[in-house]
């Protein structure tokens, strides 16, 4: 079976429907699946629930799906840096479920690993604990969080081989590896697709079993949100 698709629109063909849950990798604009987000916008799919640590910025990343009002609900840990998001949320046009970042990461990891729930001390005695089961272990209090499993995961990696094995680069890894494991269909977009003989089996970050479709994105924007440098001595 060939996992390699010619482009993002063809990779999304047949797997997108209204009301679905989509996981989108990235931290800020670092390690986001730029081309799959664009193609998802162009499918016109609506009422999406999107799981992503952030919501992009105005005019980039998931901000593009906010402009077109295709997102009904976001699960995120931090959504600053996006004026349109604030406006849609305050107008009641967008639902939002905040998850502590580590809880969000673990919910995705758990979902992909077949674990329906886990106990964590993050959020005990805060609004995050409202309505959640609490339990004591060794005299300490924990709350129950549930695993997440999506209809579709769109992730960004650095390299893939044609079997779907993925390698990420630096901090562009972030949420991508867990999301790749936690959906019915995972599509990876990468900067380079190579022959399996070219990736060292010991260096694979995401084994190919988790990846159903692969595309190569060309000409990445890779927008830097806060360019920060030091002076040469």
């Amino acid at each position: 079976m060939d996992k390699v698709f010619p482009d993002a629109p063809s990779a999304l063909n047949g797997v997108v429907k209204d009301g679905m849950m989509v996981m989108a990798g990235g931290f800020g604009l670092c390690g986001i699946p730029e081309f799959l987000i664009l193609a998802l916008r162009d499918t016109g799919a609506k009422d999406l629930t999107v799981v992503s640590n952030n919501a992009g910025v105005d005019g980039a990343g998931l901000g593009l799906l906010l402009e077109t009002r295709q997102i009904k609900k976001m699960l995120s840990s931090y959504v600053g840096e996006n004026k349109l998001f604030a406006q849609l949320y305050l107008n009641g046009e967008l639902e939002l479920e905040f998850n502590p970042q580590g809880t969000l990461a673990e919910r995705i990891r758990a979902g992909g690993a077949g674990i329906p729930g886990f106990y964590t001390k993050t959020g005990v005695d805060t609004v995050i604990a409202d309505g959640k089961e609490e339990r004591e272990f060794n005299g300490k209090r924990y709350i129950l969080e549930t695993g997440l499993f999506a209809d579709l995961a769109i992730v960004k990696a650095w390299k893939a081989d044609t079997s779907g094995n993925l390698v990420y680069r630096k901090t562009a890894r972030n949420f991508n590896p867990m999301m790749a494991t936690a959906a019915k269909v995972t599509i990876a977009e990468v900067e380079e697709i190579v022959d399996p003989s070219e990736l060292e089996p010991d260096q694979i970050h995401t084994p190919g079993v988790f990846v159903q479709r692969i595309i190569r994105g060309g000409g990445y924007d890779k927008t830097i949100e806060h360019l920060t440098t030091r002076e040469r001595a």
């Binding site: 840990s77 931090y78 959504v79 905040f98 502590p100 970042q101 005990v124």
Partner: peptide
């Protein structure tokens, strides 16, 4: 407007 807790709740816990 709430921006979110990011990783702060996990860090302090």
């Amino acid at each position: 407007m709430v921006k979110g807790m990011g990783g702060a709740m996990d860090l302090v816990a």
